[in-house]
Design a protein around this nucleic acid. Structure first.
Length: 574
RNA sequence: CGGAGCGUAGCUCAGCCUGGCUAGAGCACUUGGUUUGGGACCAAGACGUCGCAGGUUCGAAUCCUGUCGCUCCGACCA
């Protein structure tokens, strides 16, 4: 490709609405343009990089035995009603109506469609296993799109769905995808690592997310460098000890705490009850039922765990009015000891199991109880792990100190079980003639997000530093004179033709611009190799070859093409 | 949806508080010339319904009201 024939609108300044470095570089390097919030056009360069990533994904999915299909973006609500997700995924579903008033959903994912397909087309164990995948535009009614392609209203996703006859075989399919993902991200030049994950609205019981470490990521990951344990903070547990039990003291005692409504205030004189001897009582509304949550005063509730443990689809803190109505007191004086209505469940964090000599609210404004024993004084409905882990806590597996860092989620693998196959009738007859639901798994990669994650992870002060495998062009040839009769241009054309003929992705910067402009743009766009052709080196019979992230090498003119090919082949591509 | 901020040339922004003459700068763009190894220089030029609508006023980019859009924080997140 000749630079002047395509469109690479580089910008000296980043548009003011770009916040993080990858978003700025996407815009500055001329890869994308915004049409509306969370809606972008891919320009030629951005599309080429995107196609490279898609190509790697297709190769690895095919290698893993998956088969490609293409499912509709426009989906009828009925199948979502059938799966039950019309309700549970309602807040992310993009809903549209056609001119006859019929409602449609724009696909955020395709479990319903593929399971419907499987229900119709797969009848026998002889047809299994199957793993269908597609690469397609997905839609989400994002409340707040942000960071360019990271969180957009429409985006490209690779989604795959496996069908197996048994749980064990479903785990084999899962492992294949897990391994494929590891290869895909490695080939994209990404430092992505798998972490244990919550399954969320999609359901299922076994799940990993593939995370790219980045300060700008929207996820937090707890991990142990010693043993390799890693989990999304929504799922992570630690080996932190339970609250120390003391000699069972006297009966509970109410005492006045006028104006004290925070853990911190109660920890100060004259009360001086340390946070770790307090019970924090939270009132939540889980699927429109009020529940109480007891966790230690120095812990934080993990709402994802609350949903996962209780099976609730939506949870929110109760309003002060709801607290008053349920317990007769306002937040700050709440507790689970007394005056708890019989139909209100009390979930207590495991860390409090066996604790006594605790202090908690008395459900009477301005009063607390002391000498509280969880076992003796609180009617706990269920004990769950509900707290959020913090950095420095002992690893649940090896006891070493956990660390926490932010990360971008680029992929997610789930074992789904039979949730969808049962609801949508994806059954098959097994060897013995018994009708059984297929055991499913689903596997997503945010393709456009992956593209941005590559840039977020691979850049410097001058611009993008593309990994060779996903660069829009592998090589940029930069003649410093573009006059047709000049040696630089003639040689540039020759090298360009030879590399192109040998299947190298190459762009020739034939713009009649000053060298500085061309160098700056080449660095900004981030081509892995730049071949420089200028008078100085040509006079010595040399051309210069400059890796984006390394020092210039000078090479004899006739050896230039060979060196470029050698540098490209040395890339550890799989 | 709650909180905050911003909408002036393709991009970055000034002007607004304290209303006034023809609405500005840098970059980018066009033409000519000089340049030519890391975002050149000189000259000339083109580019604006000052987000939109209403109001106040002799007069509105500037003040008021409404509205739309965008960004950030929060809530939310297959």
């Amino acid at each position: 490709m000749k630079w002047t024939q395509t469109l690479i609108p580089t910008l000296r300044d980043a548009p003011a609405d770009a916040e993080i470095v990858s978003h700025k570089l996407l815009l500055r390097a001329g890869l994308i343009r915004k049409l509306a919030g969370g809606v972008y056009t891919f320009l030629p360069l951005g599309l080429r990089a995107l196609r490279k990533i898609e190509g790697i994904i297709r190769e690895e999915m095919n290698r893993a035995g998956a088969i490609e299909v293409l499912m509709p973006a426009l989906q009828p609500p009925e199948i979502w009603e059938q799966s039950g997700r019309a309700e549970t995924a309602s807040n992310v579903l993009f809903k549209v109506k056609d001119s006859s008033g019929r409602q449609w959903f724009l696909s955020p994912t395709a479990e319903e469609v593929i399971t419907t397909l499987a229900a119709n087309e797969i009848n026998s164990y002889r047809q299994l296993p199957k793993n269908f995948y597609q690469v397609s535009l997905k839609f989400r009614d994002e409340i707040r799109p942000r960071f360019g392609l990271m969180r957009a209203k429409e985006f490209i996703m690779k989604d795959a769905y496996s069908f197996d006859t048994t749980d064990e075989l479903a785990m084999v399919s899962y492992k294949k995808m897990y391994d494929a993902y590891t290869r895909i991200f490695a080939r994209c030049g990404l430092q992505a690592f798998p972490v244990e994950a919550d399954t969320g609205v999609i359901g299922g019981n076994h799940s990993h997310e593939f995370m790219v470490p980045a300060e700008t990521g929207e996820n937090e990951v707890a991990f142990c460098e010693a043993c390799g344990y890693a989990a999304n903070i929504e799922k992570a547990t630690s080996g932190i000890p339970k609250t120390a039990a003391r000699d069972l003291g006297p009966a509970i005692e109410q005492f006045a705490t006028p104006g004290v409504v925070t853990i911190e205030a109660l920890a100060k004189a004259p009360y001086s009850v340390p946070a770790n001897r307090q019970i924090k009582t939270l009132v939540y509304v889980a699927d429109s039922k009020v529940v109480l949550i007891a966790i230690r005063g120095d812990d934080q509730l993990n709402e994802t765990k609350l949903m996962a443990r209780t099976g609730a689809v939506a949870v929110r803190p109760a309003t002060p009015e709801e607290c008053q109505a349920t317990l007769g007191a306002k937040p700050g004086s709440l507790g689970a000891v007394a005056k708890v209505p019989a139909d209100v469940k009390v979930y207590s964090d495991e860390r409090l199991r066996g604790a006594n000599d605790m202090t908690t609210g008395a459900n009477e404004d301005g009063f607390h109880y002391r000498n509280v024993s969880l076992e003796r004084d609180i009617k706990v409905t269920e004990w769950y792990d509900l707290r959020t882990v913090s950095a420095g806590e002992p690893c649940v597996k090896c006891g070493k100190s956990l660390k926490i860092r932010r990360a971008i989620e680029v992929g997610h693998v789930f074992k789904l079980g039979t949730k969808y196959s049962e609801k949508l009738g994806a059954n098959f007859l097994d060897e013995t003639g018994v009708r059984r639901p297929a055991v499913m798994g689903c596997y997503g990669i945010g393709v456009t997000r992956t593209l941005q994650a590559v840039i977020e992870q691979s850049n410097d002060k001058d611009g993008i530093v593309w990994p060779l495998n996903v660069a829009p062009y592998q090589v940029c040839i930069t003649p410093l004179s573009v006059a047709p009769e000049s040696q630089a241009m003639q040689l540039a054309e020759k090298i360009y033709a030879e590399l192109t003929a040998q299947g190298v992705d190459v762009i020739l910067d034939d713009r009649d611009d000053r060298p500085g402009v061309k160098f700056k743009d080449a660095d900004l766009v981030g081509f892995p190799l730049r071949v420089g052709l200028g008078e100085k080196s040509l006079a010595k019979g040399e051309v210069e070859i400059k890796p984006r992230n390394g020092p210039v090498q000078y090479v004899k003119i006739e050896e230039a093409v060979a060196l470029v090919r050698k540098l490209i082949s040395e890339n550890p591509a799989l």
